[in-house]
Design a binder for these strands. Structure first.
Lengths: 266, 266
DNA sequence: GCAAAAGTGTTCCCGATACACCCATGC
DNA sequence: GCATGGGTGTATCGGGAACACTTTTGC
């Protein structure tokens, strides 16, 4: 290894905060108050200190800039283009966060002139390579929908199945079959029907569901820990030559490893 | 954002080089020539310069320490435990490489007293948190077997189906059904039968296959580009509460995004 | 009673799996 | 001719997907 005296790239974290408002997926952006890209929209984020993990840095930055503190947080990528920051060599580690719609807090912090929500599908050009980071965040979010407990992070602790289904439909921009959706809900042991009902309009009240857990508060205010590891490099280019590998006879073996565990931490 | 004057973590790359020797999965380790962990086995790797991408750093380090230059290379994780390096705050980005068995070159470089192959299943305690890094590299390799073209990187450009099947069996430590395996080979359009045969012993010669590609050399000497992005945080802890998410009606949509493209670059 | 959303089962299809025998060659 | 690995097809099963009607409430 080289010594410690060489110039080293700096490291930042950038956070894509997803929420759903008015039936559309939104992300949180700041209007940059300083150069470079002053006045341009950018992701919340900032430099990583030497005394904190990447997760801690992401939590700290998001709190500083938006006063949000509890959310589902997940590392999804690293961005290392040499010229991605005009000032210096800066690596960035991307995180995405999910907050329920009712938790919306928008309050500019130190570095941000302005913080606001923007419709995901209609984003302008962002500072640095942040459009690229957002793209990968969204792709990761989509693939993470397979983790069943994830989409309920967009909702309050108790939710109707119609609301839950709507989350999928909004993110995927695709209609979902109600019967199959409910069949799947029952096939997992992730959700339980509470004995409460939600009445809303001139129709039959809907049963409220919640995540099955010994500790509801842990779920609601969770930050997803990943033991500081990530995997699965992705390529955002749109070649379609992916092909499934051979699985016969060892599909189970593959599944056991492929289906990474998601663990929450308080 | 903060200014650029704060102390910053250093960034290293560590590379797990996989190959198959004597029908067993091996990885390349160096016997560290310098403190800390002098005399202890460790992964090849080193510090990232400000003028290179993480991929370039991984290629450079591997070449410096092992004189290997052409290989399949993939980023799979980031390791940021605060105390992972006793000297300083050091982030490490993990890569794995695959080289065909016949390409084996072992030659100690600048920082390594010794470089050698070790059986994956029988590794000793390594320096730093390298055991943890190796664990995730292997898990990523397993899940990447679903990318069909990947396991052929362990072989020469032309290979028999028996050899190819053996690669799966060695890595998964599990027998694979020959008929289903060949059915799958034909169902993909990744491989083509050449008109060559390989005779080897008192039995019927086997047809040689190769990856279907317009440029065979590109495949053989490829370094996998990932546009410097990675995704899919994983957790090596062994909780088993993973659950598949609901897919009905939008499984295709999910698959299109989940099945990340693997792109090669010269 | 009627509008509006909640709730509920069955059938079809495809891909994954299990499984056994003949073929071509070297000696 | 026989030992050795190469090469081939069929039947079953399970999960994903498509699909329509009854139920309960508010007005």
């Amino acid at each position: 290894m080289a010594t410690y005296k060489y110039p080293r790239p700096a490291t930042t974290v950038d956070i894509i905060v997803f929420t759903i408002r008015q039936n559309r997926l939104h992300i949180l952006l700041i209007n940059r108050g300083i150069e470079p890209f002053k006045g341009v929209l950018a992701l919340p984020g900032g430099f990583v200190n030497t005394s904190e993990t990447l997760f801690a840095a992401a939590q700290r930055e998001l709190k500083e800039e938006t006063h949000l503190s509890d959310f589902h947080l997940k590392m999804f990528g690293i961005f290392d283009d040499i010229e991605r920051d005009p000032r210096d060599r800066v690596l960035s580690v991307g995180f995405y966060a999910i907050i329920p719609s009712h938790d919306i807090i928008v309050e500019a912090g130190t570095d941000a002139e302005n913080v606001d929500w923007y419709v995901y599908e209609d984003l302008p050009a962002l500072a640095f390579d942040h459009n690229k980071i957002v793209d990968l965040a969204f792709k990761t979010l989509i693939s993470d929908l397979e983790n069943s407990s994830l989409p309920s992070k967009f909702l309050e602790t108790e939710f109707t199945l119609a609301e839950f289904q709507k989350v999928y439909e909004i993110i995927l921009t695709k209609e979902v079959d109600k019967r199959n959706f409910r069949k799947w809900i029952n096939s997992t042991d992730y959700f339980v029907k509470t004995d409460k009902l939600k009445s809303g309009g001139q129709h039959r009240p809907a049963a409220l569901y919640k995540i099955k857990s010994s500790d509801d508060e842990t779920i609601k205010n969770s930050v997803q820990s990943t033991q500081n590891e990530m995997s699965q490099i992705t390529d955002t280019s749109s070649e379609t030559d992916y092909q499934q590998g051979y699985q016969s006879g060892f599909q189970q073996a593959l599944k056991n490893v492929t289906n990474f565990v998601n663990k929450t931490q308080p």
